[in-house]
Design a protein around this nucleic acid. Structure first.
Lengths: 207, 207
DNA sequence: TTGGCTATCGTTAGGTG
DNA sequence: CCACCTAACGATAGCCA
């Protein structure tokens, strides 16, 4: 039968698959931002309700406006987060189980570990040495050492070093990004659910 | 008519619709938390990549563990958020409340302050200079060492190293900015805020 | 606790008003 | 920019290994 009847085209082709890459079109990117931002906050809301957990999310639009969701409030949770983080270095010694499955976990633990070391200086520069010495990894020490060296470099040296750094970082970032993406594209399974009243949102002055 | 009953039942009924309410079952809630948290962070990642926006998310598990996602980093974005919020009229957050229409109220719009970014860089510079005072050695070796090591690093190490590298680069930028200022005797100019850290996750040591 | 499977629900790309 | 439509894509509830 092959009805010739292609008389009417569908009003829309529906959703098309896209790559997770920066959207070049300014307009399309803005539209996508609005839609996904809404979906993102909805997910945050559902997560907090279904699992009775505290969730905070902040998104900065390309224009520089900040959108946020927080249960109970962004400030409150952020403070708590910063606190929990400062006590992280202690857990650094637990590194020892890096598996493919646990790659994300291990990866993140080290990430947090190093960042904790770095940020610790911001809060308490006096403790820089102390924390650094606690790091056993030669790489960790080397990184800290590099940062220190930067401060005493001459202009020419700084430029040379910076150039080399960019090259190295480029390679590292590319590979890191690839791995991160793989890590993200792994799971999908079924949890359970339930509902609750919408947590607190902050409304902008314009509203 | 009455088709002769399909003899076999499906191995699974597939996904069922659920109400967004607190999950009573402790176990089911935990499973849901793990699954949805992963999906939530994935959404955050996609949003930041697709729209080139800065996104930060923090989730506290029922057990009190903090999980987070931040691009470039949670602290950085939090600072920016707090900064933008404090610069608003006091009535901002108390204005209208549940007047939203279709979507929930993620209409939190604040003004992002570039000054916060500047402050962050300033803090990092101070830290770098503090450390530099105590270390002096052959820095040229570090570059060669890095390039050699990068190729041999395990995935987890690579990412951790890349993250640390960002901090180093931040120090370089700060140092360069300062020298440039001194050399040209000009005021502070828009710092290079384009430095973007790779999206990072931060999970409890337990993960 | 973690991963895989399946069927289905929810999200959203693309287009219109 | 916002609402609405359609249809396909992606996330995931319920089970099981």
């Amino acid at each position: 039968m092959t009805a010739p009847a292609p008389a009417r085209r569908r009003p829309s082709l529906g959703r098309q698959k896209i790559e997770i890459r920066r959207i070049e079109s300014e307009e399309a990117r803005q539209v996508c931002f609005s839609k996904r931002r809404a979906g993102f906050f909805k997910k945050a809301s559902e997560l907090s309700i279904l699992c009775s957990t505290d969730v905070a999310a902040v998104v900065f639009s390309p224009a520089g406006k900040a959108y946020s969701f927080g249960h109970p409030s962004v400030e409150c949770l952020l403070e708590r987060f910063l606190e929990s983080e400062s006590s992280l270095p202690a857990t650094a010694t637990q590194q020892g189980k890096a598996r493919v499955k646990g790659m994300v976990g291990e990866l993140n633990r080290q990430y947090g570990e190093l960042r904790a070391v770095v940020d610790a200086h911001k809060a308490r520069r006096e403790r820089a040495e102390e924390i650094m010495e606690k790091e056993r990894g030669a790489r960790s020490r080397s990184v800290a050492w590099m940062e220190a060296e930067v401060g005493r470099m001459a202009p020419e040296e700084l430029v040379a070093f910076g150039t080399a750094l960019v090259a190295v970082q480029g390679a590292v970032s590319a590979r890191a990004d690839q791995m991160l993406r793989e890590a993200l594209l792994i799971g999908r399974r079924p949890p359970t659910t339930s509902t609750r009243a919408p947590p607190g949102f902050h409304l902008p002055p314009h509203f």
